[in-house]
Amino acid sequence: MYQTPLKYKFLKPEKIVGQRCWMNKKEVSKAYHADLDSFVVTPGMVTAQTTENQSRSTFVISKPQIGYKTATAIFYLYGENPEKTAYNLSGLINEAKECTIQLERSNLFYRAILTSSSTSSTSFRYYTQVTLTFNVMESLPLTTHEISSNAIIYNPGTAESECILEITPKNQLPQYTIMGITIKNLTVNTTVTIDGINKTVMAGTDNKWADTDLVDFPALQPGKNEITMSSNQPVVISYYPIIL
Rank of each mutant, 00 (worst) to 15 (best):
N24S: 11
I147R: 08
A151G: 02
L103S: 11
S38L: 00
M23E: 06
P13G: 09
E83A: 05
T72D: 04
S117N: 13
P43S: 07
S57D: 13
S118G: 07
S116T: 06
V130T: 13
P64D: 04
A31R: 12
I66W: 01
T72F: 00
R56F: 14
F134P: 07
T115H: 00
V46E: 14
G18D: 03
R105W: 00
N88P: 06
S121Y: 05
V41I: 15
E80Q: 13
L77K: 05
S149N: 09
A73L: 08
T100R: 11
F134A: 13
Y87H: 10
L77E: 06
C99G: 10
K97D: 12
W22V: 11
F134V: 09
E83S: 03
V28L: 12
I93H: 07
S149W: 01
R20D: 08
V130D: 07
G157K: 04
N53V: 11
T72H: 00
K97W: 07
A31K: 13
N88G: 06
K84P: 00
K26S: 10
P13H: 09
G44A: 05
M137K: 14
T158Q: 01
E52S: 11
K15V: 01
L77C: 08
S38E: 03
K15G: 00
N88E: 09
Q129W: 01
E27K: 13
S57E: 11
T128L: 10
S123Y: 02
E104P: 06
T85G: 07
S120D: 04
F124I: 04
L92S: 09
S121P: 01
T72C: 01
E104Q: 15
P156W: 00
I101K: 07
P156C: 01
S117W: 09
T131R: 15
N81P: 08
S62C: 03
A34H: 07
E95F: 10
E83F: 08
N94W: 07
S139P: 06
I153C: 08
A34D: 05
Y76F: 12
V17F: 09
A34R: 05
L140M: 14
T119P: 01
A159C: 00
S106E: 05
A71H: 04
K15N: 05
V41G: 03
F39C: 05
M137P: 01
K84Y: 06
V60C: 03
S121N: 08
N94Y: 08
S55K: 13
